[in-house]
């Protein structure tokens, strides 16, 4: 197994405790693996690639985990790394590099845990509940071809900037994973704020928030208790303010009898 000869003195030997689960109905368990000679320049997922190659060679099925762009933008990756969503740095799992760890470290790797994100296999979860929240109202109803001239409605810079900041959400689910209540308010707040700051988003604003929040609750996410753990975990730095906006919009909707 792990050989302690390192090809570079900067390289590391690590102990990994990784969640293995055959399928949705399997109970799952943490399994311990050793990896050696890990370069600090590798990304965390490349380190898992190396482990998977080893497992494959030994005839053990590789560990399933999600990733696609590996650039921190598609939101496909996401692991709980020693208790931190996306690991100890403020970034996505795919952009986390091994130089954030030290030789001899033990790293525990778990999937996002939330009942609204059921586990498919090993570290892969089903986040389609996010899509359904968007289906409930996370859009502006405009049919192709019916759009007015783009510069017809100027947007004050300040509003445009806040809309943009909120639109940076990549839908990774780290906010849910880190939240003690497994609530998706940060994700939802980001969308409600993005669309609510823009003039184009006004007509559907109050109906949108009510249906999105209802869908959120229906999916089985927890309620928010404003702990802020979401924002700390968010790789895009979506601030907790968006949840305040979400709350305010819901209150307004309620006043209007929504």
């Amino acid at each position: 197994m792990a050989t302690s000869t390192k090809s570079d003195p900067k390289n590391m030997d690590l102990t990994l405790r990784i969640w293995r689960q055959d399928g949705p109905s399997d109970r799952g368990h943490l399994q311990t693996y050793e990896v050696s000679d890990i370069s600090p320049d590798m990304s965390f997922l490349e380190m898992l690639d190396v482990l998977n190659e080893q497992l494959n060679a030994k005839g053990e099925e590789p560990i399933a985990f999600d990733s696609d762009c590996r650039e921190g933008i598609c939101g496909m990756c996401g692991l709980m790394i020693s208790g931190h969503a996306h690991g100890p740095e403020k970034t996505t799992t795919c952009q986390l590099h091994m130089r954030s760890f030290k030789d001899g470290d033990t790293i525990t790797v778990e999937p996002w845990r939330a009942d609204a994100f059921p586990i498919i296999k090993d570290l892969v979860v089903d986040r389609s509940s996010f899509d359904r929240i968007i289906q409930a109202g996370g859009f502006i109803s405009v049919n192709t071809g019916s759009a007015p001239e783009a510069n017809a409605a100027p947007v004050p810079k300040q509003k445009a900037d806040r809309a943009f900041q909120s639109a940076e959400c990549i839908g990774c689910g780290a906010c849910v994973a880190a939240c003690p209540n497994a609530s998706a308010m940060l994700f939802m707040g980001a969308k409600v704020t993005h669309l609510g700051e823009l003039p184009q988003g006004q007509p559907e604003r109050w109906a949108r928030v009510v249906s999105m929040v209802s869908q959120h609750d229906h999916e089985g996410f927890g309620g928010c208790t404003n702990t802020g753990a979401c924002s700390v975990a968010c790789p895009k730095g979506i601030p907790q303010d968006v949840i305040s906006t979400l709350n305010k919009d819901l209150r307004t909707a309620m006043r209007q009898g929504g």
């Binding site: 929040v213 959120h216 928010c224 979400l246 709350n247 819901l250 309620m254």
Partner: peptide, 12 residues
């Protein structure tokens, strides 16, 4: 959906 039945209403 109604606003009154949401978790945010509970929070309010």
């Amino acid at each position: 959906p109604t606003a009154r039945k949401t978790t945010i209403a509970l929070k309010l």
